[in-house]
């Protein structure tokens, strides 16, 4: 029987949201708190559930404050110790006094993990395409990619990671007005191993 390992995590992100819908760049930023759990099945398969939410405060005159909430699931298959293929699905909601916008995304990508010699620190780099994106009130974006990189420090069942991530969505022009949207974040994440079965 394959060995199972459960890991819970908590994350704190400083996120910056930028969007240009034809009225200039709107910028908002703030803190996002998140958490979740992952289940490792055997040596290769990993399933994950993630929930996060926070408030992004307007940083430009044209922007408005907004709340963001997200729930996502993810599956990964380790091909070799340093390479994992991942597929994920997220449902994200931006809420402001003006409107509420829902995002549904499915991404497919890979993660490269480079362990340093002493084994406690690893460098992590991820990249994914988001072939399925559904945004309420908007057409499918022409460009939808995500990427992230950072470091992880592992010690006695705890993993502390710092990750820089970026999501970019370029929507097709509507009435000659293109829309570009981007979410960047610097995330501090703590994983706690809950045991094996």
């Amino acid at each position: 029987m394959a060995q199972r390992a459960v890991t819970a995590f908590a994350a704190l992100s400083v996120a910056e949201h930028r969007v240009d819908a034809g009225y200039g760049v709107e910028r908002a930023w703030g803190a996002i708190l998140g958490g979740g759990a992952s289940l490792r099945l055997g040596a290769r398969v990993e399933l994950g559930l993630r929930v996060q939410g926070g408030r992004l405060n307007a940083a430009t005159p044209s922007a408005v404050d907004r709340d963001v909430g997200e729930v996502g699931v993810e599956a990964g298959v380790r091909a070799v110790p340093w390479l994992t293929f991942r597929v994920g699905a997220q449902r994200r909601t931006y809420s402001s006094v003006i409107a509420r916008q829902g995002w549904t995304m499915v991404d497919v990508g890979a993660e490269v993990r480079l362990a340093f010699a002493r084994g406690t620190i690893s460098g992590v780099t991820r990249a994914a395409l988001v072939p399925l994106v559904s945004v309420s009130g908007l057409p499918r974006p022409d460009v939808a990619v995500t990427a992230a990189t950072g470091l992880q420090l592992r010690r006695r069942g705890l993993t502390l990671g710092a990750l820089y991530s970026l999501e970019r969505y370029d929507f097709p022009a509507q009435g000659a007005i293109p829309r570009v949207e981007q979410l960047a974040a610097l995330t501090l994440r703590l994983d706690v191993g809950l045991g094996r079965r």
Binding site: V14, A15, E16, R18, D20, V180, A184, A185, L186
Partner: peptide, 13 residues
């Protein structure tokens, strides 16, 4: 990877 049009991408991060 970040959009130049948007003029930034949390570069301090």
């Amino acid at each position: 990877l970040a959009s130049r049009h948007l003029g930034g991408s949390l570069k301090p991060g």
